[in-house]
Each structure stands twice: as C-alpha cells, then as structure tokens.
Nucleic acid binder design. Structure first.
Length: 1035
RNA sequence: GGGCGCGUAGCUCAGCGGUAGAGCACUACGUUGACAUCGUAGUGGCCACAGGUUCGAUCCCUGUCGCGCCCA
C-alpha cells in the first residue's frame, strides 16, 4: 500500500502514542543496554494546571534528552507527577462549591468533608495535564506518576504513595535539628485566601498612590521652634509649632501607631525627641499618646522626615519597632477588616497609654489581644476605615493643608481656599500572586525554616559545580551542581546569599498538615484553645500516636498525675463545640491538682507551603524515606530542566532540602530555559489575550512541528518569540521529510525494498559523500545535545535533511536510479533515510516513528532504535571535495543562466575551455547529475565561441554559447559585478598578507589559509578578466 | 536604588577573535521523474555609538545612549 500524500498528524499521533505506551516503551529502564542511568524529574505541573506554552517548551526539551538517552541505551527514567498546589487547588474547588446547588462553603462543610471534595475533584480533573503532555509526545513513565499529596490522611484508593510520609519525616527531622521554628512575625497576609504567603508569592505592582500629611499634636499643648536650614546652614523657615507633621500612604494604620520616629541627625525635631505626641484620630477623650523616637530608618529628605511607626502593619516599621521596643498593635482580622474583637476601645486605649508612658510592659500575646480600633470603625473594610479616618482628621483641622485657587461654579469668582495636602505618586504595592488582592503585612504566629542554617551546602555545591564547569573539568558524579546558562547561577547565588527565613505555614486546608500538637502549659489551672494554640507546649511527631506518647512523657515528668491519658484532637472539632473526655475548647486541661483528669493536645490546623513538599520532589518521587531500588539507582538524578521563574521557588529549595535531608545534591546539572513570549515579545497572558495554546497549535500543525519550533528557537538563556509563521515553516519541514520518503518509495529505495539496515559499501562519490554528511550530522547533534545546545542540534538536522539530503542527494540520485550504481544508490538512500528518522526522532517523535514503521519491517520501534555511533571514519574527504565542486559548478551555471534570462526549460550546450585533472575527473564522474541539474545537453572541449558566457570554477572554466540569446552588456555587467566583489575580498587578503606583523604573529594555519584563498581568488579573477576581454572584442 | 541581560539583514534571531549567517518576509522565474506545506536565482548589514587591547574586534575591556527582566 503506497504512502499517503501527506502525513496525517492528528490521526497518527494518538495511534503512535498508544502504541508506545502499550509496549511499555517509556517504562523506567526500557531499552537499557548499559549500566549508566539517566533520570529527569519533571517539574511537577499543578494538578489544576493545563498545558501552556511554557510547559510545552519545558517538556519538549526534557523529552529530547530522555529519548536521546533511551536510544543510546541508558537505563532511563523520566519521572512524572503533579503538585498538589495548595492555594490554587483550594481556590478551584471552592469555586466549584460556590457553583453547586447546595451552596455550602468550605467552613460550613468542615475540613474533612472539604478535603474529600478536593480529592474527588482531583480524581475527576487531575489528569487533564497528563493527557495534554501525552499529546505533546512526552515519554514519561506514567506508571510511576507521583503526586505531592499521595498517602496523606484521607487520600482515596489509587493515591497510596508515600509522599506524605516523606514530607512529614522531613519536617520532624528539621524541627528536631532546630532548623524549623515557630514565631510571631510580620508576614505577607493574603486577605482573600486568609493565609500567610511567602515573599516569593508576592508581586509588586505599581499603582497610583496617595500620600496624606497629618499633624500629630504634642502632648499637653507643648510647642517648639521648627527651623529649616539650607545646605549652608542659613535659616530658610522658622515657626513655632505645637505638632509634628507626618506623611503616610496608609492613614487607617495610624490607629495602631506605637511611636513617631525621626532620624537621629535631623535637627528640626531634636527639641522634641523623647516627648509624647497624640495620634489625631479616635474619640477625643481617649486619644493615645505615643513617644517620638530616633531611628536610622526615616529619611530626613523624604516627606516631613518624620515617620509614624505601625509595627504590626508595615515591614520597615516592624524593624524600627523591634529595635525600639515599641509595641506592635494588630488592627485587622484575617479578612483585612478592622478588628471587632476584644474589649471596648476605651479600655484598650487606656492600656496602650500606660505602655506609652512606660508604666506597663506587655507580653507579645497581651499586645496582640489589644484592639485599638475605635468602636465606630470596628468591622469596617480597611479602605472604608481609611476614608473615615481621613475625614475625621480633616474635619478636625489636623490635616496639613495648602492654599489652592478655586473658581465658584455659579459666580465665576476666584478665591483661595485651604485644601488638604495630598501627594499623588506612583508606588509599588504588594499583591498576592494568586488572589491579586493587596497584601496586608500581618503579625501572626507562623512556622519558618531557618534557611540561613541550611543554605551553605546549597551555595557550596553550585560554587564547586560552576568552577568545574568553567575549568572544563566538570564531572557528573562529583557531588556538585552546575546551573546553565551561567547567568542563572548568578541569580541563584544572589538570592541564596541574601536569603530570608522561609514562612512555610499556610492557613489552608489542602496541604500537608503541620505535624505539631499543642498541649497546655503545666501548672495552669485552666486554659483555652486560643491560649494553647499560641502559648502551648509543642510536640512535633510523625504520627498522632507518637505525639501522644511524647506528651504523656512530658506531662508525667512535669506534672505526675497518675492514670490520666493524653488524647489528641483537632481544632475544628473543638471549635464545633465537641468534647473529648469531658474536655472542651474552653477547658482543655488542667493542672496537677486535677489528678484524675486527662490531657487534650490539639494539632496545629495549618498546612505546609506547597513548595515545602515539592522541594522534596527528587527523593520523594523515588520512594524515600524507604530505601527503594529506584532511589538507589536513579538518585542523584541527572538534569533538571526548568524555567528561570522558579529558580528561587523550587530549584534553590530542592538544593537546600536534598542536601539537608540526604546530604546529596539532587541533580548534577540544572538547565534553565527562558520564557516563551508572543511574536511581539510580550509575555503571554490571558488578560492580554495573546496566549497561544499549544494544544491548538498541535491540532493545527502537529506536535512535531510545535516541538521542533520550540527547540530550534531555544537558544540558551534567551526568551523566544513564538509566531505561527515559524511553526508553519517547521511543519513544512516534516512534509519535506515525508515526501523525500515518498520519492524513495517510488524508486524502490526504502528499507523494506533493500532488506537490510546495514550501511552499504558505497562506491559512487555521491553515495560516499552523503554517508559522510550523515556522520557529520550525527557528530554535530551529539555534540550540541551534550552541551544542551538544543537549537544547534535542531538547526543542524534541519540544514542536513533539507539542505543536503533533499536539495542535493535526492536530486543526484535520480539519474543514478538506473545504471551500474542503481542498487548501491537505493541501498544508500534507504540507509540515509533511516538515519534521518533516527536522528530526528528525539525532536520529532511522531512522524519519524510513523515513517520508520511504514518503510520496513523493524525489530524494534524507532523509540527504541539504536542511536548511531559512527563518526568521522565515514567522512570521505575526496568525495567531499568532489561533490562540493559539483555543487559549486551547478550553482554557478544556474546563477549565470538566471541572470542571462535563459528560459528555465531550455537545455544548453557547454564548452570546457580549461580544466585540471581533478576537475576533469569530477566532471566525468558526475556528468549526468550536472547536466540534469544545470539543464545542459552536451559538453565539448575547446575554445570559447563568440557570444558565450563564462563560468569559472576551481581548476578551470566553462563557456556556455549563447549567441543570439546573450545580451553582451548584461553579461559584462554580470562579470564585472562578480569581479568587483572578488577584487574587494582579494584586496583584504593581500592587505593582511603584506602586513609583516600578521605573517609573524598570526597562527601558521591562518596565514596558510589566507594564502590559499588569495591564490584561488586570483586564478578566478584572471579567468573573469579574460572573459571580459573577449566580450569587449565581440561587442 | 541594587542585580542580571540585550541592541547583528524589513521582522525574529544564531554566531562571539581570522573580515557575517539562518528562518520568515520581499523580488524575478518555474507543472525539470518526492514535495506549490515546492523548486531555482536574487535584493538586503559602517554587527547601537565612542574609546582601548590585538597583526586582526561583530566577538574581549571601558564608557555613552537606547531597551528588557528580576529584587528593593
């Protein structure tokens, strides 16, 4: 059955992928023929994800490396899997719930039921991206598909992996080593999801902001001389003031101010440092006083130079507050609404007053319990509160004002009025990367990894890896890691050298719940759930049972009470009003005096940051903490292929965590690729509407074309701008290969016609030449891939298949299809095409597998075919030289004909006017090909007839009689132009050679090469000159 | 403000010490025994600018000017 006219990608891709899978072609170790292993961990896509261009790019590169190694007989594993993506997934499922008829919220249904919903959703929709990766051709071992939540409590059948065990074990180990701690810190709080997020999950967005200026009156109506001076110390402004002026972008946080700070060198405020001033908002009778302090943070040249310090709602202020022992009053709840809890304002303000006056010291927890939001603002949204605060201050006359001209609308009269001074300026505002809402710095209890303690090995490993890479002594098994391109190593160093503690707790339900239980402090009569969660004794253990045992031991030691037992429970349960052993939320335990009473410990309700678990991806997917065969075999893995945007999120953390946990680097090489942008260079985004969906492109052009485009454009470290034109171009390339195969089919030159896959013993130059070209391509591809130069590999193959095989070899072969060399040529062509399929397979797996299958009976599918080992020994220098001469001659004649407007169909005679032996031999061996491709009908030897055009080649020249056809002026122009160009080149060459310094200093071979070039050029020039001279005689 | 890059043909980009390449676009011609998703030929570049190192610089160094990205 003859081949179809074109490749039907849509039909073949599904069929071929199924064939690979059902043959187990991608299984770990499939096609292994040697000891060496090769392992890549897929960067786990979010379980909520669907394939975007970045995934397509990332996974194409991985697939190329994997298929290439598999064909070379490595014991190969491409480990796939997905990330449970805490926030993203919880968001998706909550959205589903909102659509649901029952209309139950997450909180209404409760934690357990909600988690069951998430798992249900995962079971339904979690495979989306896997199926999309299959369409791309990704050759992952899907039988090993991993999930970062596998094995977690509540996981349904089919999710029994042990990733959860790994995560919990690591948490417990790091906790015990003192690398994980809990503390009340200012964190980035996402009011939409009501959770803390890490610095990396915050996006700074520039927005139009406002800066208000307010007066904080001095306590007791005191006054001071406010003096401004210029650079030379001359007084430029002086007035008596009874206030200090403050600029702020967030008036609503004034309610939580703990101090006003000025720079120690700021003379303007020196007279009032140490005094108290009044926050100009809130009920008059309870206005709070706060101290004026000095700190290095305020910039005397910015605003008024005085800064209000709200430690609980600003990162800079928090630092000042810590240094100055200023209390941090939290003003907002988890939704970023003004707090409505706690004692009435009057009571809270009184306590704060006594603190400001130095009469009282409060513990952190006591400070946190104080709600300083005035009663009329409680429960308001932060922005509503801001409006009211501004109104209140302004109406009281405490806003700094400016004189402004205004025009009365009715009378048209101009008059001056005082308006509040509000500056408009662009400012950076933090937003949640998922929720897109403004982040609120919030003082809360969170868990942190003390990254400073584990960062050093991660830095060291890459320092060593980069040093070895640069020195050319890189060894994949030396226990270090290199990052390519080098630039990204710099980014990595820069971030790790300035690393901040990593906040790993999230106030979500979907995730690995923190394995810490809190029990009451001993020797307290009665306590509450809130108090236990904040101040309780911590028991960190891998299981509930272990935690109970630890607690039992602890309480027995600190408070021997006899028969009582420890029972663990969870926060939800207690909050729902349930009791265990008679103990409830408000009466959780009991001290030693209640000998018969049992103790309740309660588990931390928070879960871990998703990246904490994906940080363990390399070992977790291989079965750690169990000592599995795969772990021993494939770990450390080989290459990580990833985007630059997750160097911090993921790469750095994997490095730190693997080194901290198993004391080994997770991979020896990190290949960092750039971003796929649209054709204008814009980031693809849904809001811009410039997203190219890889699945649409695959449907339109085929997966091979999409893959090849991405690969060809993957110059290391540079963003790629994707356009459909480019993809269409590479789709055409697949068609080209298809049609070359069809030509071979029509001429009985397929593998199935030849009956062997052996390299033929070729005698004809054309065949020896193309065999050498195949070898050259194989060497170049291997070299490029070894250096992760994917674009070089792709472009080499493109140029080889199209530019050498299709453009020349197929054409040369046509006249050889009958005659003495027919059999040899058919065998060579079959072999060459086979090599094309093999070499292209990692890049374009579908069409090559299809052609492989259609062109012959094969022992193995192409996916498992042997990658060739031949090399320079197949390159025949003589054949090379001869064919390049032939190609050059054909091109010269074609060019000349075209410029002389010779009709394409017209066959011309040719006269050899001079030729050396090599030239004669080349002509003799290839005359039919030359005649065919240059459209010649006969060759004679002799002198150039009148009215002929001249074609000069190495070793001689030809004349093509064109009497009557030729336009002499035009031929003169053509020759002159060629000569001119040549003369320019020769001038340069002579210039260099006549420079004694060049001859002395330049390497011998360069000098020699220059001489040769000059000699050849001069010879050609003399022929051209002769031809010109002849034309002049005629014309 | 700090860090990392990039300015090469109309466009998108390779190249990175030996005198400039690809794809697309464009122009002309073309049913030559696979391919019009094609073929043949051609047009098009002071390799951002200015210095320096070198026998020689698009490539290395310094500065200037434009443009990105990341972190404050």
């Amino acid at each position: 059955m003859p081949m179809e006219k074109t490749f039907n990608a849509a039909e073949a891709e599904t069929r071929l992928y199924e064939a690979w899978e059902s043959a187990g072609a991608f299984k770990a170790g499939a096609n292994a023929s040697r000891e060496d292993t090769f392992c890549i961990m897929i960067p786990p896509p979010n379980v909520t994800g669907s394939l975007h261009m970045g995934h397509a790019f990332n996974n194409t590169l991985q697939d190329i490396l994997v298929r290439w190694h598999r064909m070379r007989g490595f014991d190969t594993l491409w480990q796939p899997g997905q990330d449970h993506a805490g926030i993203a997934t919880q968001m998706v499922v909550e959205r589903e719930l909102a659509k649901d008829k029952s209309n139950q919220t997450r909180r209404e249904m409760g934690r357990e039921a909600f988690l069951a919903k998430v798992w249900e959703w995962k079971g339904k929709s979690g495979d989306t991206i896997i199926n999309q990766l299959k369409r791309l051709g990704a050759s992952c071992d899907w039988s090993r598909n991993a999930f970062t939540m596998s094995g977690a409590p509540g996981a349904p059948a089919g999710e029994e992996g042990n990733f959860h065990d790994a995560v919990i074990k690591v948490f417990v180990d790091l906790y015990n080593k003192g690398y994980i701690y809990r503390g009340k810190r200012l964190v980035n709080w996402d009011p939409h999801f009501e959770t803390a997020i890490s610095d990396l999950e915050v996006e700074q967005v520039e927005v139009q902001g406002h800066m208000w200026h307010f007066k904080y009156p001095l306590a007791g109506g005191q006054t001071y001389e406010y003096v401004e001076k210029d650079e030379d110390g001359n007084v430029t402004f002086r007035e008596t003031r009874d206030y200090i002026s403050i600029a702020t972008t967030r008036p609503e946080t004034m309610l939580g101010d703990g101090a006003v700070a000025v720079h120690p060198s700021d003379e303007r405020y020196a007279p009032i440092v140490g005094k108290l001033c009044e926050i100009p908002v809130g009920p008059k009778e309870h206005r709070r006083l706060i101290p004026i302090i000095t700190d290095e943070y305020p910039d005397p040249t910015f605003g008024s130079g005085a800064v209000k310090i709200t430690g609980a709602h600003d990162f800079n202020d928090y630092g000042v507050a810590k240094r100055g022992n200023i209390p941090c009053y939290r003003l907002m709840d988890t939704k970023a609404q003004m707090r409505a809890d706690g004692a009435p304002y009057a009571e809270a303000a009184a306590i704060a007053m006594s603190v400001a006056k130095g009469e009282r010291q409060l513990s952190e927890a006591e400070v946190d319990a104080i709600n300083l939001v005035p009663d009329d603002l409680r429960g308001l949204d932060r922005y509503e509160a801001r409006r009211r605060v501004i109104d209140q201050i302004t109406s009281e006359g405490l806003a700094v004002t400016l004189l402004q001209k205004s025009i009365d609308k009715e009378t048209g009269a101009e008059h001056l009025e005082r308006v509040p001074f509000v500056e408009q300026n662009r400012m950076m505002q933090p937003h949640g990367d998922r929720s897109k809402v403004v982040i609120e710095p919030m003082l809360t209890d969170q868990w942190f990894v003390d990254t400073a303690k584990i960062v050093e090995p991660a830095l060291d490993a890459v320092r060593k890896g980069m040093a070895a890479h640069e020195a050319g002594t890189f060894d994949e098994n030396a226990g270090y890691t290199r990052i390519l391109p080098e630039r990204d190593a710099k980014t990595y160093f820069h971030w790790l050298e300035n690393i901040e503690p990593w906040c790993i707790s999230r106030q979500l339900w979907w995730g690995h719940q923190i394995p810490v239980w809190y029990g009451p402090q001993p020797n307290i009569q009665k306590t509450s759930l809130t108090d236990v969660l904040q101040n309780g004794v911590m028991f960190c253990a891998a299981t509930e049972r272990d935690a109970e045992r630890m607690a039992e031991e602890f309480y027995r030691k600190h408070m021997p009470w006899g028969p009582g037992t420890v029972t663990s429970t969870d926060v939800e349960f207690l909050r729902a009003g349930e009791k265990i052993n008679g103990l409830s939320q408000d009466h959780m335990l009991v001290s030693g005096s209640y000998k018969e009473t049992d103790v309740l410990i309660v588990r931390d309700p928070d879960v871990l940051d998703t990246w904490f678990s994906s940080g363990l991806w390399p070992i977790g997917t291989l079965g750690w903490p169990e000592d599995t065969e795969e772990l021993r075999k494939y770990f450390p893995t080989d290459v990580l292929v990833t985007g630059f945007d997750i160097i911090f999120f993921w790469v750095a953390r994997m490095m730190m965590m693997q080194l901290a946990v198993v004391d080994q680097v997770p991979f020896h090489t990190v290949y960092v690729h750039a971003l796929v942008r649209d054709e204008k260079g814009k980031k693809m985004s849904k809001s811009l509407g410039n997203v190219l969906d890889p699945l649409d492109l695959i449907a339109e052009y085929g997966a091979d074309a999409v893959r090849f485009t991405l690969t060809a454009m993957a110059a290391m470290g540079r963003d790629l701008k994707l356009s459909k034109d480019r993809i269409a171009g590479y789709r055409n390339f697949t068609t080209k290969l298809w049609n070359a195969t069809r030509f071979a089919e029509m001429n009985g030159a397929l593998r199935r016609d030849i009956g062997t896959a052996e390299l033929p013993q070729a005698t004809h130059t054309v065949n020896r030449w193309i065999i050498g070209e195949v070898a050259r391509a194989r060497l170049a591809v291997d070299e490029a891939l070894s250096a992760y130069r994917f674009n070089d590999a792709a472009n080499t193959l493109y140029a080889f298949v199209w530019g050498k095989v299709c453009d020349w070899y197929v054409e040369f072969a046509k006249p050889l299809m009958d005659g003495d060399q027919a059999a040899e040529t058919r065998a060579t062509m079959a072999w060459v095409l086979d090599q094309c399929y093999v070499l292209l397979h990692p890049f374009m797996p579908f069409i090559t597998e299809e052609l492989w299958g259609q062109t012959g009976e094969r022992a193995k599918m192409l996916v498992h075919a042997d990658w060739p080992a031949y090399g320079a020994e197949l390159i025949d220098a003589d054949a090379d030289r001869e064919m390049n001469w032939v190609i050059g001659l054909i091109e010269e004649i074609r060019s000349a004909r075209m410029q002389m407007h010779v009709p394409a169909g017209l066959k011309l005679p040719i006269v050899m006017t001079a030729m050396d032996d090599k030239g004669r031999a080349a002509w003799a061996g290839n005359e039919p090909m030359i005649a065919r491709l240059a459209r010649l009908d006969s060759m004679t030897e002799g002198t150039a007839p009148k009215g002929a055009i001249t074609v000069a080649v190495e070793g001689g020249s030809f004349a093509i009689p064109l009497e009557g056809v030729i336009d002499i002026a035009e031929e003169k122009a053509r020759l002159s132009k060629t000569l001119e160009k040549l003369a320019k080149d020769l001038g340069g060459l002579r210039g260099r050679l006549s420079n004694p310094k060049f001859v002395d200093s330049a390497p011998e071979e360069i000098v020699e090469e220059t001489r040769e070039k000059l000699a050849l050029g001069e010879e050609e020039a003399s022929k051209l000159k002769a031809a010109l001279a002849r034309l002049s005689e005629v014309g």
